[in-house]
Design a protein around this nucleic acid. Sequence first.
DNA 1: TTGAAAGCGCTAACAA
DNA 2: TTGTTAGCGCTTTCAA
Lengths: 344, 344
Amino acid sequence: MASTIQDVAKAAGVSAATVSRVFNGGRVTAERAERVRRAAAELGFAPNRVARSLRTQRASVIGLLIPDIENPFFTAMARGVEDAAQQTNLSVVLCNTDEDVDKERRYLEVALAEQMAGVIVAAASRERTDLSLLEARGMPVVAVDRRPRGSNVDVVLVDNAHGSEDATAHMLARGYRRIACITGPQGASTSEERLAGYRTAIGDFLRAHPDRAGEYPVDPVTEWTRFADFKVEGGHKAMADLLARPERPDAVFVANNLMAVGALRALREAGLNAPEFGILSFGEVPWAPMVSPSLTTVQLPSYDLGWTAASLLQDRMSGKDRPLQTVVLRTALQVRDSTSGPGA
Amino acid sequence: MASTIQDVAKAAGVSAATVSRVFNGGRVTAERAERVRRAAAELGFAPNRVARSLRTQRASVIGLLIPDIENPFFTAMARGVEDAAQQTNLSVVLCNTDEDVDKERRYLEVALAEQMAGVIVAAASRERTDLSLLEARGMPVVAVDRRPRGSNVDVVLVDNAHGSEDATAHMLARGYRRIACITGPQGASTSEERLAGYRTAIGDFLRAHPDRAGEYPVDPVTEWTRFADFKVEGGHKAMADLLARPERPDAVFVANNLMAVGALRALREAGLNAPEFGILSFGEVPWAPMVSPSLTTVQLPSYDLGWTAASLLQDRMSGKDRPLQTVVLRTALQVRDSTSGPGA
DNA sequence: TTGAAAGCGCTAACAA
DNA sequence: TTGTTAGCGCTTTCAA
């Protein structure tokens, strides 16, 4: 059906090897190259990548494994990967692992069987994702967003601690003082890192203003911290709980976007509004600019995460034997109206 | 590096053909099959899919081309495709065409070169997307959401007209009378179909209540219709324009989710609120339940669109030679608070 | 039921 | 610079 390199060779009166050279940048005289190109165009020839992969033992496809294709954070990341890959004519195969380690393992096996050129993986689990199979076979791998335990691969991460510190410092600068924190589950690295950033900022402030200590409960960084589940309902419950305390906070730093939605609802139910009560979401909310007041957020470098991972992967694929890298990307604070200050 | 079928054959003391039969359901005595399986497990053997594809001339990968991976409508569709494909052990390669016909064409060529088993495409353009290359080579193709002009492929579409008619009828039933419509660009099939549904519902109502005609401008279905661009700003401008008219509407049917966001803002700026002023969005808005009042929407069958397309594709792939199908899937009205009625 | 052998379409080593 | 040749790993006749 489709024409092969042999057909083109015959039509152009040259050997298959010459046709191959024309398509792969080998040395061919201009005149013959032209003849080949014309014949190829006439026959609608396009090299069969399957045969090429089999012969060269490498594909021009990279696999991208993400836990949730419906999460904008990951789709933006996928765009970054795609754009970077396109520069070297790599195609990207997107695999949705659904936060399921088994499904993820199956896709990893597919990547091996398909001889993919490399794999970028946002691990379904830091504990249980196992990249050793790929490593054993020498397949280039880059982990992104989460670093799977015990794996020897390049990693690209978000600087959660700095982002949280900046965000909290911003709220302090805008005049909020009694800032609470709703973070994710205890033990999850992202929760812990974001909480740590918040604590650093509060600690720094208290050290700079020792006179202020009297305004706070015994230990604000623990009294006003709640561990939730990164989901809407968890954020709602945590916020309601914080508001019920005798020393009520005047602002809240929420460690992810879904919990921020829940916290917003709890505030509204308590008759509180931003910016009198400050609220800031770690992680973009698509409709952040549309709610009123618009929501201040920490923007995650999702696109760049993908772009960077793809670049690292291509380095590895080209056989550069440099030591393993961990790249940490910074977040960006998007100041909007929900943190204008308690008196604004 | 990775072990081949030959390695397994040697280890099990059989021929490569026998190993192949074990993995593909050929006739092999139980005892030898067992030996082969053991050897394969020991060597960590998994058949090389590239070689298999080259030999059999077909792959176990299908391509899914979508215009915008960051649009929840398409990611939900992708989930549907993926889930359906998984049932027959097909992998899905997701390609983001970015509403760009050239990029789309490149991906279509990749699909051919990679010998993919089939392609599902949400066309970047109804006019300019060209599937004839694939058709010429006999590759199974299903078009989804949009029917590219001049192509002979199975199609899965959304029933825009019925969905809009239902939605408009719902608003009428809730007591809104002066219902405006903001639709997409003139000429786009989705705009026209949604507008047509709105007109049908209004027309039916007026025919059933001829006494009401006096309450309306000369021709409500044209006076209160605005063509916008399916974007936030377009919706905002159209709504503001409608509100400036002497015969002000008391509700609006908005033909997509982004324009609904713009329309909401225009309403708020004019001091109008739902449900006194009714508003309904065609197409789900992720935060529809979270705004107050919660937004009534028409839910598109995005997941099922994908699932159905994948099923049709698999029929085609298995060589069933049935006539071309067009499947039209119905929408579902999600009634929330923004259309409780003008007196609610 | 089994194995030997051919060949899918391509590239790369080698020889000319 | 060009062509010849071998072979990537698999499946599928064909003959035994």
